[in-house]
Simulated scan of single mutants.
Amino acid sequence: MPAPVIDIRAASKRYDGGPPALADLTLTVAAGEAVAVLGPSGSGKSTLLNLVAGLDRPSSGTVTVDGLRIDELSESGSAKYRRAKIGMVFQFFNLLDDLTVADNVLLPAQLVGMDRAEARARAAELLEYLGVDRHARAYPGRLSGGERQRVAVARALVNRPALLLADEPTGALDTASGEDVRELLTGLNRDGQTILLVTHDLALAESCASRTIELVDGHIVRDSQAVAR
């Protein structure tokens, strides 16, 4: 049986001696799963995402992603891990307004030293696949919210990450754009992309996640498989 993409064992996280943000949490995510993490504010959702992203370390326990123990990495090692192993999609897109759409997508490929021609071909492929290739030379400020999120997804996928992390990817979008992004993430998962998303959007969780986890006070209180889509 192949190793899971995410393998968290007995991970706890405390900040400044307060109550645990995560408490002895164990979680595995297999290749090809789309897992939605739900829960009220303060439940530990962001902490979980930060541990998987290598932006924070557990106070105890282990975090392994795609075979790499990321809780043991140095700061520079964590940065290299994020560039090579994961793609990240944020609520507010985090695109660079002074770069064109194409250059925003190319940036992560340049940071890992991908061949220029290969990077341009990969970026063009993704922009076409995501339906925003006509905006390649435009600047992000001229795009709708849904279009900007599609560009952000292209940027996240340019290095072919083992894992796509999405933090409230529909949170800043209107209803129509949110539906657009839900369909996009569903399609990516059907094409084999492993996804971990944190969301308050129940429609997003129900439509694109093959599995839903609910956190309360740092504990997993529900872990359920979706009905086959």
Rank of each mutant, 00 (worst) to 15 (best):
T26S: 15
L25H: 07
T194F: 03
A209R: 01
T47M: 09
N50F: 02
Q91P: 08
D201E: 07
A136P: 07
D191T: 10
M1R: 06
H135Q: 04
A136R: 14
Y15V: 05
Q91G: 11
N104A: 13
G218T: 03
G145K: 03
V221C: 06
A138L: 09
T47Q: 06
R69P: 15
D174L: 13
G218H: 01
L126D: 02
V89K: 04
L51I: 10
L184Y: 13
L164I: 00
V132S: 09
L48R: 01
A152H: 04
A121N: 10
L204F: 05
A102C: 09
D97E: 12
L106Q: 09
G141S: 10
L106Y: 02
V101R: 03
V112F: 14
L22P: 03
A124R: 11
R142A: 15
E33P: 08
L73M: 13
S41K: 11
C208Q: 06
S12Y: 12
A31Y: 02
H219Y: 07
I6D: 02
D191Q: 13
R155P: 05
L96E: 05
I220S: 00
V65W: 04
P19G: 11
A123W: 04
L51W: 08
P40T: 13
A11L: 06
H219V: 06
R120M: 12
L25A: 08
T62N: 13
R134M: 11
G171E: 04
S43K: 02
G113C: 11
P19M: 14
L173G: 04
Y139N: 11
L25P: 02
S74D: 13
V198G: 01
T170W: 07
R116Q: 06
Y15G: 02
A226C: 00
V216R: 12
T64M: 14
G145M: 12
A23G: 09
V216A: 13
Q225P: 01
A102T: 13
R155D: 08
I86G: 03
V151N: 02
A136H: 12
A21L: 09
I6L: 15
V216F: 14
G171P: 08
G178M: 08
G77P: 06
P40C: 10
L25Y: 03
Y129D: 14
E118M: 12
V101Y: 02
E75M: 00
A154W: 04
L48T: 05
Q110V: 13
L173Y: 03
F90I: 07
A30P: 04
V52H: 10
G32C: 01
I213K: 01
